[in-house]
Design a protein around this nucleic acid. Structure first.
Lengths: 399, 399
DNA sequence: CAGGAATAATTTCTGGACGGAACTTAAATT
DNA sequence: AATTTAAGTTCCGTCCAGAAATTATTCCTG
């Protein structure tokens, strides 16, 4: 009885009750918690908590560990419950037009291994086969999550510009090819989910995530859940006008946010053909031309942040992405842009700038798999029961 | 047993279980339904349905009635359950700077009586007293809802520009003065809720409501719930730029959406000092100056619609308000604005133009009271359990 | 027109999950 | 040793799902 066979990672996810999933999620997101605290947060009775945590501890998903801080008072100290990350591992995949990035994380979304390789083909079947090959090199995986820059609705890639895909049922295909539960979503949506579950936005009721990279992306959390377009379209603000004359944009107008912020437009405005890193160096060296391009981009970013904050009044705006050096270089202009756009007390706007590594994208893919596994969305390709769609009870809609 | 004393309206709301509230809500929003259909939609067992509907029918909230369409097939016909609107009545109040509008509705939000009177004072205590006086003329009311154009957070009016209020605990005050459960919210938020519960957006998972009046307002429904700012700020898009040179706006810039759309700015641009109705007549008579002002306003409205749709990709955009003649007169320009702004397939955008009467505002106040009563938010001034704030399970988070 | 067939609704039973109360055990501080 | 706080346990009542039988009401068919 005391020597259980569950010490090593099992690759099959246990059958958890609704409550058990809630408890696991709570510990996953809000860090080590005592049973009493979980019971209080989830409004569960002590007997239920005891019963549920017993299942989770026996199943190896939770372990008792030391408290971070000894909770100053007298009395018996609480037994803090931690998620045993090693219990399960997930594969996250990020697809770009040229490469396939893969990251294996444990259950706590902590990266364990990262690789990347050239994409051999853009053909959906070939890409699926390549994902399956990568997955085969990581035995013992519990689930797969794929993040890509396209329009995704229920695992169907409705449109992907760079891969030239239309209506590719990627989720079903990857799941079939690997035999593993699979989740697929837009990369910015995945990143937003990752920040909301495991990042500095953990557990917030509302948040906006803005990524700056080759382009800009926006993700929104409202009422504790990701905003998913009814047609799979993620939120896009990128052609909102900045209010200053600016470069020509792909949408046909001048002065869109994205025209100021897209890397290739910024670089095109500089003499020579500098790389992004070279352009940054020029700014640091005091080149006035580069300075102006980056200042304007910073201002446009500020306008974007202010606009997003006007729309959802989030608890926090999270700024991240591999274009973050822009913020470091032009933060004054970013804040000018926010000041000219955000219509309320600037003290209400909490801007959180979060360092970013490109491997975050693949990690976000893994988070998709973790989320789908814990919430049980992943069991099969079922999408039938999506819309009961009664209005819920506003701010008290918790459960 | 068969002659029950509950035939006349009782003013006290019965103590309903969670499930009973869900069932009532379902019938309220999706119209007459059979028990089997409710059970299917709410994923309840037949025994539970029988038990719950018995309570609701005995309590007078539901009645059995005829089906709208006989559901062609063979077999015993379903007993359609209707909400017995007459069971309860609610008072909705809309406050403007000068007047107090009041509408009494039944439980189905159908207006029963409407009055309005001048506001005697702007002093919070005086306004509360006046509301209480109005309420006293409608005995047998179950709850009160107040809608006003200010920033409202949990019944506290944080800011109201026209009444010059700051941090007025209106909900508690009205509740104390009348002895009745009270709900208070921003007027546009209230209107959005009303359209989502009883209007053409009934039960949608996502929707945007745009009101055109003296100004413009926006309300959003995402994941089946109203988007409420974390600091009580409703969504505002009104100073987004239209991309054409335009009139000076109060925010200091030119060409904001609101500068094109605010009635007083539109009228200021016309020679003489026409009223809104006169200006409309001029447009209809072919006056080119008036024509241009309205065309530009229409275009700005289109930009607003497109921008909102870009942000949340809603199932439906609902356009309403007492400035709706603008749409009738300049609909081509509205659609031009949408076309220039909305970035996706225009077929995805369902625009629903809904006629509007000023009494809608007060009716929306009544809907606030209905909503709060049914969801149980109204019992006392409790606001403690607002934020359990775990991330919920995305699109499957229903229940 | 009588007798299926079909569909709706109720009832009864069983079993599981949960909450609340009250008690016990455990582990720390004072 | 007393106090304090955390956690487990037991008992009981409630709510609900699922299964199966029953009753109710219609249409259809011969």
């Amino acid at each position: 009885m005391s020597s259980e066979p569950g010490d090593r990672a099992t690759s099959s996810w246990p059958d958890l009750s609704e409550v058990a999933r809630d408890v696991l999620l709570e510990v996953l997101i809000h860090g080590p918690l005592s049973r009493a605290e979980i019971a209080h947060r989830l409004r569960l009775s002590r007997p239920t908590l005891t019963r549920v945590t017993r299942v989770l501890v026996r199943g190896g998903l939770l372990v008792e560990g030391a408290a971070a801080k000894p909770r100053s008072s007298a009395g018996r100290p609480a037994e803090m419950l931690h998620v045993r990350g090693a219990a399960h591992h997930f594969l996250g995949v990020k697809l770009t037009a040229e490469r396939l990035f893969a990251t294996v994380t444990d259950l706590t979304a902590t990266p364990v291994e990262t690789t990347d390789e050239a994409l051999r083909s853009h053909e959906p079947d070939q890409v699926v086969a390549q994902i399956a090959e990568v997955a085969a090199t990581f035995p013992g995986i519990t689930g797969i999550g794929v993040a890509l820059g396209g329009i995704v609705l229920d695992g169907l890639v409705a449109r992907h510009e760079f891969l030239h895909w239309t209506d590719v049922p990627l989720k079903a295909a990857v799941s079939r090819a690997t035999g593993l539960p699979t989740a697929v979503d837009n990369d910015v949506q995945a990143l937003t989910t990752a920040q909301h579950w495991f990042g500095p936005g953990a557990g917030l009721r509302s948040m906006a995530v803005i990524t700056v990279g080759a382009g800009v992306g926006t993700g929104l959390i409202v009422n504790g859940a990701l905003v998913e377009g009814s047609h799979g379209l993620p939120p896009h603000f990128s052609h909102t006008l900045v209010g200053r004359d600016g470069p020509q944009c792909g949408c046909g107008r001048r002065g869109c946010i994205s025209s100021f912020l897209m890397t290739h437009v910024m670089l095109r405005r500089l003499s020579g053909h500098p790389t992004y890193a070279e352009a940054l160096d020029r700014v640091r060296a005091g080149d006035p031309q580069a300075r102006q391009v980056f200042d304007e981009a910073g201002y446009a970013l500020g306008v974007l942040i202010g606009t997003v904050a006007n729309v959802t009044d989030p608890q926090k705006v999270l700024l991240t992405g591999d274009g973050l050096p822009l913020y470091e270089i032009a933060s004054r202009h970013v804040h000018d842009g926010i000041g000219d756009t955000y219509e309320d007390d600037p003290d209400l706007l909490e801007l959180d700038v979060q360092p970013f590594d490109f491997s975050e994208w693949a990690r976000s893919g893994a988070v998709l798999a973790i989320k789908a596994t814990i919430t049980g969305d992943i069991v099969e390709g079922r999408t039938d029961q999506v819309g009961t769609s009664r209005p819920t009870a506003g701010r008290s809609a918790g459960r």
